[in-house]
């Protein structure tokens, strides 16, 4: 399996960032960066990362099932994550979540038919003082209202 030159460079750096014999430390970053490029942690990604690090695919599977940001199935091109934890909840995060579910007619971790947008109800993402917050892929949006959320979703549709 081949990756983009940027990702190859990142992998190369990761594999030399840890003490000798400890390249397994690169596993979780490699899976996350590969997912960003490939769209999910596919069987091929697992095999390839396992080979490069020198562990078995089973060991990779064991680790990846622990981390909530690693997905075995592709999420949408734009993954909309709505926090409903305490600080966001106190500011209407749960209403935002209901709003996005209704608006897109999707449930948690479901993807629109065209594969463009997926939604996920997430735990605290570290934006408590600027709640309620959402993340679209890695981009934070703070003080989100249902109206603002609609604007963000409309913007994503236009970007396609």
């Amino acid at each position: 399996m081949t990756f983009s030159p940027e990702l190859e460079a990142r992998f190369e750096k990761l594999l030399t960032s840890y003490p000798p014999g400890r390249q397994r430390s690169a596993l979780i970053p490699m899976l996350l960066y590969a997912q960003d490029e490939v769209g999910s942690v596919s069987d091929e990604v697992i095999d390839e990362v396992a080979r490069r690090i020198g562990v078995t695919p089973l060991q990779v599977n064991e680790v990846l099932s622990y981390y909530t940001m690693l997905h075995r199935k592709p999420m949408g091109k734009y993954h909309v994550q709505v926090c409903t934890n305490i600080s966001c909840l106190l500011n209407g995060g749960d209403k935002l979540w209901e709003h996005v579910c209704k608006r897109l007619d999707l449930g948690n971790k479901e993807v629109t038919e065209d594969g463009q947008i997926s939604i996920e109800e997430v735990e605290c993402m570290g934006a408590c003082s600027w709640a309620p917050a959402i993340q679209v892929n890695y981009d934070f949006h703070h003080f989100v209202t249902p109206e603002k959320l609609d604007e963000i979703l409309d913007g994503l549709r236009k970007k396609q």
Partner: peptide, 21 residues
């Protein structure tokens, strides 16, 4: 070094396990 979604990894010994892949 990036994590990949886990509150527990903020606990020091779990963080070290995670750092070791």
């Amino acid at each position: 070094h990036t994590g990949a979604g886990s509150y527990e990894c903020g606990e020091e010994s779990a963080l070290l396990e995670s750092l070791e892949g």
